[in-house]
Simulated assay, not measured.
Amino acid sequence: MRIGLHLSTARDAANAVEMARRLGLDCLQIFAGSPRTWRRVAWSAEETARFRAGAALAGLDPVVIHAPYLINLAAADEALWSKSIEALTDQLRMAQAIGAAGVVVHPGSRGARPLDWGLERVAQGAARALAAAGGQSKVILENTCGAGGALGGRLEQLAAMLDLLGDAPCAVCLDTAHAWGAGYDISSADGAAAFVDQVDDVVGLESVLLWHFNDMKLPCGCGRDIHAHLGRGRIGRAGLAGLAQDPRLAAAAAVMETPKDSRWADRRNVLYLRRLVLGQAPGGLLTPTA
């Protein structure tokens, strides 16, 4: 399993690559700008070149960009839908510039519109962004907790969107916390194995470019999403170990989006996951986070 983190590019994008190198990461996820605004932070040509060269030298594969949270590819409002497509296009162009494999994006919310309408709307929006951006950086559709009109809570919805996109460069990202929030009980070895079975049957493991390995503070099926440090949430060690040690995920890329509430947090979670992959007890890694 290739282990990575979501790291900050604030002040200097190359800082994320240097931190990844220090932590011994295999892959990396970043924001290309603020995730909570429409405004893009422009990288200079020098910064872009240094990031790309540094990531290649560090052997980070894949590198992915996480899209801003404001994007809603299922929006019924035409202005918001168009703005979302434009923003995703910009993110895809940025991914191509830095050599990233693609852009992770939440499909969005259909509101009160029918499910089939929403799935088609997402596929149309993603296809337009891909066509406008050109290149081969992928749209990577992430699963969600599925509350309300949010799309992507069920594996069948992700599979349907992939089918609608056909041969377009697209893939899936599976977040363990989101799966738990959507009602997939992966808190045991058997539950984790059953979930991977479902992923393979419904989506196809070959379509999963990235996993987000996060523990979860809230109950299974809650429809909400609050990440926890690995082993300190409701999914827990048994479920996470079941996924980490599944031979079908031996070559998978696993990025953690765990809390950054101390200077030890990232290192602790990386070591925890590495020990799970190796079948070792993660004891001794419970460094206080305060």
Rank of each mutant, 00 (worst) to 15 (best):
M1A: 11
I3F: 09
G4Q: 05
E18H: 15
A20V: 09
C27R: 04
S34C: 15
S34H: 13
W38C: 07
V41F: 15
A49E: 15
R50G: 10
F51A: 08
L57G: 14
D61S: 15
I71N: 01
L80P: 06
I85L: 11
A87P: 07
A87F: 07
T89K: 03
D90G: 11
L92Q: 07
A95Y: 06
Q96L: 12
Q96G: 15
I98R: 08
V103T: 05
V105D: 00
A112Q: 13
P114I: 02
R121E: 01
Q124C: 13
G125L: 05
A132K: 11
A133N: 06
G135T: 09
G153N: 04
A171H: 04
V172N: 00
C173K: 07
L174A: 03
D175K: 03
A177F: 02
H178Q: 05
G191E: 09
A194W: 09
Q198I: 03
D201P: 08
D201S: 14
D201C: 12
V203I: 12
V203K: 01
L209F: 11
P219W: 08
P219A: 09
C220M: 12
G221P: 07
L230I: 06
L230P: 01
R232N: 13
G233A: 04
A238M: 08
P247A: 10
N269D: 14
R275M: 06
P282I: 04
P282W: 06
G284T: 06
L285D: 06
T287P: 11
P288T: 07
